[in-house]
Write a protein that binds this DNA or RNA. Structure first.
Lengths: 131, 131
DNA sequence: TATAATAACGATAATCATTACTGAATGATT
DNA sequence: AATCATTCAGTAATGATTATCGTTATTATA
């Protein structure tokens, strides 16, 4: 499996660095400005393949379109309920805390935790003074 | 927001106690056996209203239909990747741990956590020996 | 380099979960 | 009983995502 290249996939990688946790539609809109003939299907297919291959993370939020994250490190997300921005927990979540959590979950449910999806919601620093 | 009654809604409440974290479609199928003229729209409308009123919890999972939980207490969920069953963490997640988590998230992202959605995945006790 | 094989593209149709709309039926209120 | 609101069943509409398909681009091979 050689490393695959296509101009469109490069544009998608580019969009992911420019945009912050974008949806497929946002990636599509971004690329369209410079390359109008891009297809939304192409964006979805590439993002899906990249997610399957571990090159990007696919994030699912309740009642909202999926978002994509080029940061593939193990981290959580926090969404601002006011401005909608999504923040990464940049690795500073103490691993010991997560291990404790996993242990508590296993004790309570019997599930030997392999992975977790955690989304925190609240007001971000910018929105807090305003609201 | 008074608690509403209708024969159909009662059937839905009933289905929620019989089934384990069912989807709207599963509730629909269950009711249909005894009451074939039930409408899927009625199931969705009632579940949505009940969730909005806090009578049930609506759970969103990545790439899967929403599920509904009559347990409205603050708790998390753990899914078995093998059998697909979903388990509640029955309140035994130490509150102190969650508070610690919230603090770590706020330190890392600036979000003052108001709520969290956490899903843990792994092998349940029944499936672990088999796989 | 020419060409065959393979993979990706753009366009569009199909799918799936969910919501919105409709006129009929049911239930509550004067 | 007459009105007025609520809920129903049925169905159409929506929005996100995936699948299909004929064409084009990229890679491998002669």
């Amino acid at each position: 499996m050689t490393k695959r290249f296509s101009a469109q996939r490069e544009m998608i990688r580019d969009a992911l660095t420019m945009l912050d946790h974008p949806t497929a539609a946002q990636v599509y809109d971004h690329i369209r400005r410079a390359y109008p003939q891009i297809s939304l299907g192409t964006v979805y297919r590439n993002l899906g393949d990249m997610a399957a291959g571990g090159e990007v993370l696919r994030l699912s939020f309740a009642g909202a379109p999926d978002r994509f994250d080029m940061n593939t490190a193990d981290h959580c997300h926090a969404a601002c309920v006011w401005c909608g921005r999504i923040f990464d927990t940049d690795g500073s979540l103490p691993a010991a805390l997560l291990r404790e959590l996993d242990a508590a979950v296993e004790k309570s449910t019997g599930i030997a935790v392999q992975s977790r999806a955690m989304l925190f919601s609240g007001a971000c620093a910018d929105c807090r003074p305003v609201h």
